[in-house]
Design a protein around this nucleic acid. Structure first.
Length: 306
DNA sequence: AGCGGTCAAGTTGAT
DNA sequence: ATCAACTTGACCGCT
């Protein structure tokens, strides 16, 4: 059974996550900043609840939660603790309630911290901030029952073996609560599945296999071989990513994502697996609706809510 | 209401 | 040196 996943936001459906900026928060008083943050965070718990309901009702079995669900959470000056916000209790309750609904309906929840979260930088302050961000997202993940916090391998810094060794060492030293949710994903610049699989085996971290990235940065493995190898790293339902190139595979740059998914880009070998496929397409829920229709026409077995 | 400028953060590679 | 890409344009403040 294939579980299609929506990433972070909606195109047409009026479900919106709110955010703000550190610059603005630092210009107003701390009380005003806390009031604003409190309202945004509370609104985001409600948007998350709506997102889960929408997914369950539309055959979308997984939802990726935006890193800014708690805006500016770990900023050195503008950051905050939920407990210190006026609606702190309601925000916690909102996350727990959203998680409960996700569990009831069988909707999987994931996180994908952004490009600044690097576990192998030679600069210790970069890695420290990355771990702080992972800690925050892992904590919210626990509240809502998300089982994946997915990041990339990071930079190469002119020496890939050293960078990979730092990655392994940092992962091994992570708090258990983060390590239990952490996954690594092949990217389209630096780290292929072949680069990351040894890291995953050494650390017990699953590999999120991104077929689009793999085609942009190949390593000699076929998509079928990489899929099989990635599956062996999982102790939960495996997670893969799919997208189609905006300008086609023969265009100037295959990396930017298309509005929709071309079914021909989905590895045929995925058909009979139990797998979450996060759909990275600009048209969001509209892209999933189109993909679902095509796959159902072709008799793929797709997830449905309980 | 509309619109232009701004936004915390890292790294890479194309131009 | 600048910029786009990466999981995502949203929001503030002025007109």
């Amino acid at each position: 059974m294939i579980r299609l996943g929506l990433c972070c936001k909606f195109k047409d459906e009026p479900i919106r996550f709110r955010t703000t900026t550190a610059t603005y928060l630092l210009r107003i008083s701390r009380d005003e900043a806390c009031a604003k943050l409190s309202a945004l965070c509370l609104a985001n718990t409600q948007a998350l609840r709506q997102a889960i309901e929408y997914c369950a009702a539309h055959g979308i079995g997984s939802f990726r939660i935006n890193s800014q669900i708690l805006p500016v959470k770990t900023h050195p000056q503008a950051g905050y603790d939920i407990a210190n916000l006026p609606d702190g209790d309601a925000i916690c309750a909102g996350f727990l309630a959203a998680g409960e609904r996700a569990r009831e309906q069988g909707v999987r929840l994931t996180f994908h911290p952004d490009q600044f979260v690097l576990l192998n930088s030679p600069r210790p302050e970069v890695t420290e901030r990355a771990i702080a961000d992972l800690a925050y997202q892992a904590a919210v993940a626990d509240w809502v029952g998300a089982d994946v916090v997915n990041i990339h391998g990071g930079g190469v810094y002119g020496d890939k073996p050293s960078a990979l060794a730092r990655l392994v060492a940092t992962i091994q030293a992570l708090p258990a609560a983060i390590r239990a949710l952490l996954t690594l994903e092949n990217d389209d610049r630096s780290y292929t599945p072949t680069d990351l699989l040894p890291v995953c085996r050494q650390t017990g971290i699953p590999l999120v296999y991104d077929a689009h990235h793999h085609r942009c940065l190949p390593d000699g493995l076929s998509t079928a071989e990489a899929t099989v190898a990635a599956l062996t790293t999982w102790d939960r339902e495996p997670l893969c990513h799919i997208s189609s190139p905006k300008h086609g595979w023969d265009g100037p740059d295959p990396r930017p994502h298309h509005e929709f998914i071309d079914c021909a880009d989905i590895p045929a070998g995925w058909r009979d697996l139990d797998l979450t496929v996060e759909v990275e397409a600009k048209a969001k829920e509209a892209a999933i609706a189109g993909l679902r229709a095509t796959l159902l026409r072709d008799r793929w077995k797709l997830w449905e809510a309980k």
